[in-house]
């Protein structure tokens, strides 16, 4: 199951120009799934990205605009597109010139996939209790 998901994520990396990495973490920053484009090593710590987003998303949910769905952050050389998918966080690392709209659309498409992981985690967690 896990290998199938990694293959699915790696296929996504080839679909969008400039997309370097896709990572699924929980809200504590624990990496559940990681797919990197060949010959690329984005200079971000995946676990730190998850924690940053969890913190920022909680803050954004206090704006009075209901729950936060996603955050796009653009730096000089890279951009991060992060999604709040129930209990999991999906992060895309891409070049700053990559198509942000496409990445946002890709994230919505992936929601059903991350939902599978979240359900599996929840079942395992409730089985352990």
């Amino acid at each position: 199951m896990s290998e199938e998901l990694v293959v699915h994520f790696e296929k996504l990396l080839t679909r969008v120009d400039g997309l370097l990495s896709a990572v699924v973490t929980d809200r504590d920053g624990v990496v559940l799934l990681r797919a990197n484009a060949p010959n690329s090593a984005p200079p971000f710590t995946e676990s730190a990205l998850g924690c940053t987003f969890a913190l920022a998303s909680d803050q954004a949910s206090k704006l009075g605009l209901k729950k936060n769905r996603s955050i796009v952050s653009v730096y000089g050389a890279y951009q991060l597109v992060q999604f709040n998918h129930s209990s999991l966080i999906t992060t895309f690392v891409a070049n700053s010139s990559a198509n942000t709209g496409l990445l946002l659309e890709l994230g919505s498409e992936l929601e059903s996939v991350t939902q599978v992981i979240a359900t599996a985690l929840h079942e395992r967690h409730s089985g352990a209790l």
Partner: peptide, 19 residues
């Protein structure tokens, strides 16, 4: 997250359910 190899933060976009 700003490092020399990442560059400065230039833009943030937050999407919430109602704004």
């Amino acid at each position: 997250h700003c490092k020399p190899e990442v560059g400065p933060l230039s833009f943030l976009m937050l999407e919430c359910e109602e704004g």
